[in-house]
Structure formats: structure tokens, C-alpha cells
Write a protein that binds this DNA or RNA. Sequence first.
RNA 1: GUGGGCGUAGCUCAGUUGGCAGAGUGCAGGAUUGUGAUUCCUGUUGUCGCGGGUUCGACCCCCGUCGCUCACCCCA
Length: 424
Amino acid sequence: MAKTIQAIRGMHDVLPEQTPLWQAVEATIREVLSAYGYSEIRLPIVEKTELFKRSIGEVTDIVEKEMYTFDDRNGESLTLRPEGTAGCLRASLEHGLLPNQSHRLWYYGPMYRHERPQKGRYRQFIQLGVETYGMPGPEIDAELLLIMERLWQKLGLRAHVRLELNSLGTLAERAVYREQLVTYFETHSQQLDDDSKRRLHTNPLRILDSKNPALTEVIANAPVLFDYLGEDSKAHFTAVTDLLTHLGIAYQINPRLVRGLDYYSKTVFEWVTEQLGAQGTVCAGGRYDGLIEQLSGKTGHAIGFAMGMERLLALLENQNTLALAKPVQVYLVRVGEQAQRPGLYFAERLRDAIPHLKLQVNMEGGSFKSQFKKADKSGADYAIIVGDDEVAQGVISIKSLRDEQGQRALTDAEAIRFFQQLYL
RNA sequence: GUGGGCGUAGCUCAGUUGGCAGAGUGCAGGAUUGUGAUUCCUGUUGUCGCGGGUUCGACCCCCGUCGCUCACCCCA
């Protein structure tokens, strides 16, 4: 058993038992996004390493130690995408969707980060990404949150998530604040733990988010980012919160909310839950106006978010709010030499008559008993029986597996009509 | 990268101060020569994660290793 090849650590199979839930969630997501006029964009999973280094930030953990990077045959360094924003923006710039245009886009697919797996954190994980370009005003910030609000409600998860909100200001404003913050923490460095001392040089804003209770006091007395924001940033943030209030979306301002990626500015947000242990962030995002200029040299506006699908599914597994599709509605049992071909032919006629009918034909053989067991296990509503007796009499037998309707013998045409009335 | 817990049948898990490897479930067959889900009977599944050591003897003790899992870090 140990010799058989296993999946790569942190990369999981979604088994048939789980796929109906995934499909239901995916359908709900498409429904909500299309209600707001968003278009799907499909992007490569591999990009040039340089793209991620330049957009995410050279000194972030993702770039420093979590990327799946390898050399192509021509010696060029390539990387399995650790997130979607950079690739989406790259594609949009490359194909002239930017700048000076507005777009509302979404994508869905696997991302890769070489981290130690734990609950809600995997090396391959599926993200839904939503990105919008060309809209500087606070209304698009609010629209993204409205989309999520609507999605939570459709999924029956509204009570399980909380919206936290903050503004990081512009890159320039944050740089000034960052300097002040580093100075402050340096003068209090004897009160910092090892992790925080390390962050002082990598990502000092992260210290504010520390889980160490010993740091509560130092953090509480630290300079507050909001005081360093310019008039424009403050007005933008106020407008966003005002819109949310009037649209009836509950939120909490979290002045210590700091996104991990370098490119964020102004509005940032996280939807968090208490139910997933340490990985409580299910959906997060923010504005990244500066990244467009960074990658293209031209100014622009962008805001988006990403949602972790495995985390969403983990939340959903405790619920029972979605109607899941059955893989099989009707199961056809064939018994006896004379019944094999006629059973198969009838199945095709039935599929012609009801194209979306989910009809499975038993080909495993076996006794009546075992075929009925499989019919029952398939979850089908009805079993169709084609046996030698039926063939001799020119009929098809139909038996309900979910109630006490009993069994009936019908001609082919009657049987087709019977199922048409039920499923067409 | 660091630390804790756990690896026994397809699945969920018992097990013994070191002495023939178990149950439930699933699967197959039968009771019912053509009828599932309930009931009863019978049968079936193992390199006890892998490698080494100690021992007359190791699923059990020791060392190493791999995997899973949870937490730190970080993030969706």
C-alpha cells in the first residue's frame, strides 16, 4: 500500500460524493456574478516568475518561500500562480482592456502555495477571483461587498461570516506611516516578541495583527494608520462605509486589518468566520490602484477580492442549505440473455425523448438482487426492469424505489410517456 | 521552516505488562428459482505506513523515515 503513488502533499482530490456540492456552489456564484454583469476571464495557471515578484512584493512570504517556481526548457523562470490578481491584470494590460476602460471580471481555478497544510489551507486550492478596473469611486468598493453579501445569503451562510473593513491609504501615505510605526516599535523593542522583531524589517504593519496577548499594550499605544491618511483617502473610506450603512450591510471597522500583499491601497476588507479554526478568512480583497501603474507605467484604478473555495465548502458542510443534484434519476436493470439488447435500445429511446434525464444502465450484470441494490444505492427514483419476461410480453416494467407505488408493466411508448410526465 | 497528536480491512475504529490480528460497516451469496431500502444466515477483505534495532518472540518497546492532522508563521 505504501508503494502505490499518492497525491502530492496538500493537493486533494474532490471525490464524486463531493462534486454535487461544488457544482451547486459554483452555479450559485455564477448566478450572483451575472446578476451584476460580471464576465468570466480564463487565465493560464503558469506565469513568468517576474510577474509575481513585481506585483505581490519581493519580501512577502509568498514570493520568498511559497512559490512553486521552476525553469522552463529555455531557462526562463516560471511559477505556478500563487494568486490570481497579477495574472488577471497582466492579461488585461496585454490585450488592451486597460487603461482608460472599465471592466468587471471574475475567474475561478487553482492557486499554488508551498505552505505547510492545515485545516483550510492547502498547497493547491481553488479561488474565486473578482477584479474590477477603471472605477475610482467608492461605489464599486460597495458593489463588491454587495455581491458577497448576496452570495452569503444565497448559500445560507450570512450568520456565519462577519465583514471587517479598513483603509490602508495610498502607497505614499502608508510609507510615511510605516516609517513612524517602525520608529515607535524600535523604541519599544524590548516589549516585542521574536516574531514581531522579525516583522519589523519585513512587514511592520503585521505586528498590529499579532495574536500574542503580551503585545496588546504596545500595539494599543502605537500610531494609528487612519491619522496618516490624506483627505482623499479619508473621504473615500467614509463614502464606502456610508454606502454600506445605507445598503444595510453590517460591517466592523478593524483599524489593525492589514492585507498581506504589497499592492493594496485604500479600501481593504475581509469576510471572516469563527468556525474554521486558525484559517478564518474566507474571502478578502481590496483596492490596488497602484499596481496598474507599477505594471504598466500608466495610472489606473482597480479593486477586487478572492474567495477560498475550500474554506467556503468547509463552512457549507455544516449546513444543509443547497439542493444537490442527484447523479442518477432512473436506473435500468437488465436480466436474461434476451433482455440485454432491448434494454440498451430502450434506454437510448428514453434519452432521445428526455435529453436531460439522468439514466444509468446496469452493465455490471449480477443477480436481480444485486442489480436492485445498485439501483437503490445510485439514488434513483425509479428502476426500469427489462428481463426476458418483459421482452416476451413486449413490455417495460417500472418500479418506484422511493415510495409504495408498486410496479407497473407498460408498453415502450407508455413508459416513455410516463417518464416524460415526470421529468420533461 | 517550527511544534503537538495520529498511521491496524475499501470506510469508521477496537486491541495486548511484548505470545495465532478483531468488531461494525461495506462487498458477495443465500433465506425469497425475477425485486432494493428492513430482518436473519453464510462468506470475504490485512506487508498492523515504511526501514532498521532490542527480544526466543514486536501491531505493541527504541531509533529513523514517510504520510495525515492541528497549531505557530503566513494567507484564500
